[in-house]
Amino acid sequence: MRRQLRTVFSTVTGSVAAVLLLLLVLLAIVGPIVWSAKANAIDVAKAWLPPSGEHWFGTDELGRDMFARSLVATRLSLLSAVAASGIAIVVGVPIGLLAALFGPRLTSAFQSVVNVAIAFPALLTAMFVGTVIGIGVPGAVLGVGIALAPMFARLTQTLTASVVSLDYVAAARTMGVPLHKLVGRHILANVAEPLVITATTSVGTSLLGISALSFLGLGARPPQYDWGGLLSTGLKAIYTSPLAAIGPGALIALSGIVFSLLGEVIAGAFGDSQAGRRFGRVARAMARRSSKATLPPSDVLLDVANLRVGFPSEAGSFPPCGVSRCGSPPASGSASWASPAPARA
């Protein structure tokens, strides 16, 4: 993990994304502490003021400072985004695991449901949930979380399916390893990286989704406010003080970009390092299994005979072998079969 972190910081985009994320988190922590008083100071006489030295983004309909409000809103905006992603993971990952672990029939049923669910507009799902549990931050967070859950379910199902057929899972089963350890140690540990990457990007997606809901008046409601809500306030004053809308809008865009960049950078870091190699190896192991299956069954031993004639019986304690490795012709499209692994040990 430390090596991955170093890789993240070694790229320009990685450093930029990391620094911006740090700033956002810092702002989320100190923002409400420092600027709350200013953000909530009502002065109707100063309503809808254009930007000035005193009010950088101008003021809203109650004369509150839009800049201070934008800073304070960082906490709610980020927290709800993280919470929504958390819900998506908590709902989606177990469903994907179940679908992959328990039989092909469940898997195909799952696939039909999830494919429809993914094609379904996420905002509509979120609105549906919001209607049921009421308009507000919890409704928006739960709605976006549930809307994103199918994505995690499908990813987990695909990844798990690719791991669960590997021999080390079979080996663990023959050891009598209980299910929770099997899932934790052998499956989740080996599919964690793509999940982490998707989780990172999904925070950005959640943030945009919740902002959209708040912007439409279906998320945070007064007295709570997040960037989406501030953006819709600012839109009302777009003719007189455009910064009131552009400010929160820029913060939304920036955060969205930070999380998607971060996801990309993490993916790159995993790709460069041992994790990527491991993935390559898993794929190779599977390729080998499939190529074994496509070998013409009856030719194997005959071909050995042809190849082995005249081969000196050199090994003192052990007759030569290696039939499948050198004897059989490479089956169609099995590159890994044709090239033997480098001799080691």
Binding site: D167, Y168, A171, G176, N190, A285, M286
Partner: peptide
């Protein structure tokens, strides 16, 4: 599963796939 594990164990064909890369 536990009882069976004490009675029968297996060594798999592919040592690249039969060991959990994370352990």
């Amino acid at each position: 599963a536990r009882q069976r594990a004490r009675r029968v164990q297996m060594i798999f064909q592919d040592p690249f796939g039969s060991l959990n890369p994370r352990m």
